[in-house]
Design a protein around this nucleic acid. Structure first.
Length: 576
RNA sequence: CGGGGCGUAGCGCAGUCCGGUAGCGCGCCUGCUUUGGGAGCAGGAUGUCGGAGGUUCAAAUCCUCUCGCCCCGACCA
């Protein structure tokens, strides 16, 4: 492709509404343009990157036995009413009406549509298992779209669904997809982790997110420094016993302290001239209509998902200010476990705290020297959000490291959440009607684009991994001598014959402009044919990642570069 | 949903307080020169000043309403 003929509108200045590197660079380098909040157009370069990703995804999924389909993007409301999600999904589901006032939704995901398809045409165990996927635009009317392609409202997603005769087979396929995703992201050249994830309200136990590691990621994940356990902090379990509970036999009885007007943890700690770690935090919640309290060390966060699971509650909300006043008998900020007539649940760490400060259930007062087991009792459980340094819950000695991640893939064991209400059933060997057991598997294609840039850029621009780059090589001419163009065209043809995708910058621009654009656009290999090439027959080969900057004889450059490209493309395909 | 910020040429911005009929840089077009890290000179094109209503002789500027975009928060007692 010739640069002069391609639409690559690069910008010297960043658009003012972009904050994160991927957004800034993808706009500046001419890959995307914003159309509305969270809605983007893909320009030719952006489209090429998307195609690269899609190709890898298709190859690996097809290889793993999945089949591609294309479902509609506009779903009739009754479909969603059948699964119950029309009521449950909320404002993220964009609803619309046609001219006859019939209601539709723009698909944010396609469980309903795929189930409707399969249940009508698959009635026998002989036709199972099935794994169907599509690559298609999705729409989610996000509360707050942000960070460019990272959290858009409209985005391209690969969504796949599998159907099985029983749970065992569904789990086998789950593993198959897990392995396939690992291959896909490895081939994309991304630094990622597969982490255990919270299954949310769908239930079930199996769920992994594929997280690309990047500081700008929205998700928080932890990985063990001793074993291979890694999980989203929403999910990460903690080791029960870490140290011995401190000896509190000499601790004086607890006593009130006057703390006028200080109710927030930091304020209380500052007022008492101590650390938040010495404070005991009491959080009042309403679980299915009944009050409960969670106790945590002052600097810790409650993991509501863990709490809800522990309680077996379907609804769990923080108590309102009025409820807090009524339950604790004090203003908000002065609740404590001592004498509180509410079921108490203490995080593992609370046991090991030693004498602590906590609210006195009396406005403007706290208690000091409060000891677990002596001054109050509570059920002890893993309740907090895992953080860096916390003890791994899967092995005996590991500690957690913390990372930020961008969720680019998610595999999920669904069970019969959809097949049951929507009656997606089959006849088994014995002639009995049974619901199919399902799994679902997603990859955010456009989010992979953003994640790759977040992970691979510098102050000059993008640095694509070879597998995702819109072109493998950019060929730049520097100088106006007629011989230079001729040489470049020969190299261009030679590379194309060898299957290398080349962007030939034939523009009538000064070399500086071409170099700046090449760096910004981020193509992995740059070949420069300049005046020097005319004199000594050498051209420059330089890698965008800085790993190579050398000169190669004109005659050899095509073979040298094409094998470099091939080698790199094959790196992730090992075992294929 | 709560709070904050911003909408002026394709992009980045000034002008708004204090009303007088729109400007700068980049980009774009033409010509000449230039050609290894975002060239120089000369000439040129480009605006419903987000929209609607109001005040006024006169509105980018003041008032009211509205739309859009960005950021922070939306459990932490």
């Amino acid at each position: 492709m010739r640069f002069s003929q391609m639409l690559i509108p690069t910008l010297k200045e960043a658009p003012s509404d972009a904050r994160v590197p991927s957004h800034v660079l993808l706009v500046r380098a001419g890959y995307i343009r914003q159309v509305a909040a969270g809605i983007f157009s893909l320009l030719p370069l952006g489209m090429r990157v998307v195609h690269r990703i899609e190709r890898i995804v298709r190859q690996e999924l097809n290889r793993a036995g999945a089949m591609e389909v294309l479902l509609p993007m506009v779903h009739p409301a009754p479909l969603w009413q059948e699964s119950g999600r029309w009521q449950v999904y909320g404002p993220q589901l964009l609803r619309l009406r046609d001219r006859k006032e019939f209601e539709f939704a723009l698909a944010p995901t396609a469980e309903e549509a795929i189930v409707a398809l399969v249940r009508d045409d698959v009635r026998s165990y002989r036709r199972l298992p099935l794994n169907l996927y599509q690559i298609q635009d999705k729409f989610r009317d996000e509360d707050r779209p942000r960070a460019g392609l990272m959290r858009g409202r409209e985005f391209i997603m690969k969504d796949g669904y599998s159907f099985h005769v029983d749970e065992e087979d569904a789990r086998r396929e789950y593993q198959n997809m897990y392995d396939t995703y690992t291959r896909i992201f490895r081939r994309c050249g991304l630094d990622f982790r597969a982490v255990e994830a919270d299954t949310g309200n769908i239930g079930g136990s199996l769920s992994h997110e594929f997280q690309v590691l990047a500081d700008t990621g929205e998700d928080s994940i932890v990985s063990c420094d001793a074993c291979d356990y890694a999980a989203n902090v929403e999910k990460a379990v903690l080791r029960r016993q870490v140290g011995e509970p401190p000896d509190t036999s000499a601790t004086p009885p607890c006593s009130p302290v006057h703390t006028p007007g200080v109710g927030r943890i930091e304020e209380v700690a500052a007022f008492l001239q101590t650390e938040p770690q010495r404070l005991l935090k009491t959080l009042l919640y309403i679980a299915d209509g009944k009050p409960v309290a969670a106790l945590l060390r002052g600097d810790r966060q409650l993991n509501e998902a863990k709490f809800r699971t522990l309680l077996g509650a379907s609804q769990l909300d923080p108590a309102s200010d009025a409820q807090v006043r009524q339950l604790s008998g004090a203003e908000v900020g002065f609740a404590g476990p001592v004498g509180l007539a509410v079921p108490l649940y203490a995080d593992l760490e609370v046991v090991e705290m030693g004498p602590a400060f906590c609210g006195a259930n009396r406005t403007d007062y706290h208690l000091q020297d409060v000891v677990f087991g002596r001054d109050y009792q509570a059920q002890v459980a893993d309740l907090r959000v895992a953080a860096a340094g916390d003890p791994c819950g899967r092995c005996e000695r590991g500690r957690y490291r913390h990372h930020r991640g961008i969720e680019v893939g998610h595999v999920f064991f669904l069970g019969t959440r959809y097949s049951e209400p929507m009656r997606c059933e089959f006849l088994d060997r014995e002639g009995r009607l049974r619901p199919m057991v399902m799994g679902c598997y997603g990859i955010g294609i456009t989010r992979v684009v953003a994640a790759a840039v977040e992970q691979n850029h510098d102050e000059h621009g993008i640095r694509w991994p070879m597998a995702l780059a819109p072109f493998h090589v950019i060929l730049v001419t520097a100088g106006l001598e007629p011989g230079i163009g001729e040489m470049a065209r020969r190299i261009y043809d030679d590379l194309q014959v060898r299957g290398v995708d080349v962007l030939y910058d034939d523009r009538d621009e000064r070399p500086g402009v071409k170099f700046k654009d090449a760096d910004l656009i981020g193509i992995p290999v740059r070949i420069t044919v300049g005046r020097k090439a005319l004199s000594d027959g050498m051209v420059e080969v330089r890698r965008r990642d800085g790993k190579l900057d050398t000169r190669v004889p004109l005659q050899e450059v095509a073979s040298v570069v094409s094998s470099m490209v091939q080698r790199e493309l094959e790196m992730g395909v090992a075992g294929a």
